Computed example of a mutant assay.
Amino acid sequence: MERYRDEEAFMQQHIETMEVATRGRDFIDVTAEIAHRLKAVRAGNGLLTLFIRHTSASLTIQENADPDVRHDLVNALDRLAPESAGYVHDIEGPDDMPAHIKTMLTDTHLAIPVSKGRMVLGTWQGIYVVEHRARPHQRDVVIHFAGEIGTG
Rank of each mutant, 00 (worst) to 15 (best):
residue 53 R to G: 09
residue 65 A to N: 11
residue 93 G to C: 03
residue 103 T to I: 01
residue 16 E to P: 09
residue 60 T to C: 06
residue 21 A to E: 08
residue 139 R to Q: 04
residue 95 D to A: 01
residue 7 E to Y: 07
residue 36 H to L: 09
residue 67 P to T: 02
residue 120 V to N: 14
residue 122 G to R: 06
residue 125 Q to H: 12
residue 123 T to C: 03
residue 87 Y to L: 15
residue 121 L to T: 06
residue 106 T to F: 14
residue 113 P to L: 04
residue 14 H to C: 11
residue 144 H to W: 13
residue 112 I to M: 03
residue 115 S to R: 13
residue 85 A to F: 11
residue 122 G to N: 10
residue 142 V to R: 07
residue 61 I to S: 02
residue 34 I to Y: 00
residue 11 M to N: 10
residue 46 G to Y: 08
residue 33 E to F: 08
residue 78 D to P: 00
residue 44 G to T: 05
residue 114 V to N: 08
residue 122 G to W: 04
residue 77 L to Y: 15
residue 2 E to W: 11
residue 45 N to A: 04
residue 138 Q to I: 15
residue 87 Y to H: 06
residue 116 K to P: 14
residue 54 H to I: 02
residue 73 L to R: 02
residue 101 I to S: 06
residue 80 L to E: 04
residue 106 T to A: 04
residue 86 G to P: 08
residue 91 I to V: 03
residue 122 G to M: 06
residue 71 H to C: 11
residue 70 R to F: 05
residue 21 A to P: 14
residue 131 E to L: 06
residue 110 L to R: 07
residue 43 A to Y: 01
residue 54 H to E: 14
residue 118 R to N: 06
residue 41 V to H: 00
residue 136 P to W: 03
residue 128 Y to I: 07
residue 152 G to N: 03
residue 78 D to L: 14
residue 143 I to R: 00
residue 64 N to Y: 15
residue 52 I to P: 00
residue 125 Q to P: 14
residue 128 Y to G: 08
residue 13 Q to M: 15
residue 48 L to R: 00
residue 145 F to T: 06
residue 148 E to N: 05
residue 101 I to H: 04
residue 146 A to C: 14
residue 29 D to K: 05
residue 91 I to S: 09
residue 66 D to I: 12
residue 136 P to M: 09
residue 120 V to W: 11
residue 119 M to C: 14
residue 89 H to T: 15
residue 99 A to L: 01
residue 13 Q to R: 12
residue 81 A to D: 02
residue 137 H to I: 07
residue 55 T to R: 01
residue 33 E to K: 05
residue 28 I to M: 09
residue 71 H to S: 07
residue 32 A to N: 06
residue 2 E to L: 03
residue 124 W to V: 10
residue 5 R to T: 14
residue 67 P to F: 13
residue 108 T to M: 12
residue 30 V to Q: 01
residue 40 A to R: 12
residue 60 T to E: 12
residue 87 Y to A: 07
residue 133 R to D: 06
